[in-house]
Design a protein around this nucleic acid. Sequence first.
DNA 1: TAGATTGTTAATCGATTAACAATC
DNA 2: TAGATTGTTAATCGATTAACAATC
Lengths: 216, 216
Amino acid sequence: MPKRKNVPSSVIRRLPRYYRFIGELEKSGFSRISSKELSLRMGLTASQIRQDLNCFGEFGQQGYGYNVPQLHEQIGGILGVAKHYPLIIIGAGNIGRAIALNIDFESLGFSLSGIFDIQPSIIGQRIKNITVRPITELEDFCNENKPKTAVLTIPQTAAPDITERLVSAGVIGFWNFSHYDISNRYPNVAVENVHFGDSAMTLCYRIKDIDENSDK
Amino acid sequence: MPKRKNVPSSVIRRLPRYYRFIGELEKSGFSRISSKELSLRMGLTASQIRQDLNCFGEFGQQGYGYNVPQLHEQIGGILGVAKHYPLIIIGAGNIGRAIALNIDFESLGFSLSGIFDIQPSIIGQRIKNITVRPITELEDFCNENKPKTAVLTIPQTAAPDITERLVSAGVIGFWNFSHYDISNRYPNVAVENVHFGDSAMTLCYRIKDIDENSDK
DNA sequence: TAGATTGTTAATCGATTAACAATC
DNA sequence: TAGATTGTTAATCGATTAACAATC
């Protein structure tokens, strides 16, 4: 049913934002929207919106535009937000804990099924009704629960070994908060990096740029 | 002194990763590296590395390559990691707290100088030796401390008003963890978005893709 | 000096934007 | 039907890669 030629990753990265905007329009009671109107709200070109959506099929109707609730549903389907891919968090330190507590995995296509740590003082704690397990139980847990995804909130030094074990255990997706470079190491494994440090430095560069070029 | 024609943002986004890799090389005792060798380690082309660095000046030496400690220093200088731009965090909930505790702002060009919240139960708490202030004191604090940067870890509904107040108070950079769309609203303001939900959905899409195309 | 490797220009590739025929 | 707006092809723009002369 889908056309889906090889979808450029630039398009994929825009999908969640479309999903959010269309969702807000739906909540506000819109029933239809044109690519023109949406482009104004999102700060994109209408052309780009139509090109992007057309990677996945024909969702609009000439002369009318797009049906808002329907389009929301369809983009959600493309992203897979209604899936429940079992997910585990490796590392229950500050970041791991904050993610476990704050991210609504159920609305993002995942289902939090386990949390692991190596620290005896942390093991056994309960976070969101889930007991933190010792990392030694990783393989047994994976055999039983077949998690497809792992969140890495561990130090860079621990990452290579853990990654290897997870891939062996069948994990095909990483949400990587560590500084370890997973990409290109394993074929058919998806890696989404979140590097706070890189993000902050990029901001610093631009602030410096504005700061230095404004006072004259 | 620098050439710095308009640097494409694709290049800027790669700088922190260069900085990390060169830093690790330096720690491992490397004194020189060629673009070829670095390209193999980083999974880029040598051509791209040379092009990228040349946006900022001529850092290498023909026939030799790049001096590792020197290059590390230079990229750090470009990014501004030795700066101490005063920074405030707006919102001391789970995410705000985790960021305050975990991000080493001092090594990223910033200096954490204030934390604000609206919740009476949170105001007055101490996080990293900083007392959480009521949001009502925002303007006074900004007048006195002139923060250039604000981290937004607040709900989307609160964001438009707070952003407006911060820009009026002289903030020129936002590290935006909220779903509010700041970009394009204010000229000469840098915005770095961190959207966990978008990031997770992108991962979900790719896992789904791998999952559906592997079992045949 | 000869070999290595840069800085930089030219060629290619991919992504964005513009244009317009198809059609609701 | 006429007007609006899509889907899609063509044109433009920007970013990546290749090539090579300059030079350490």
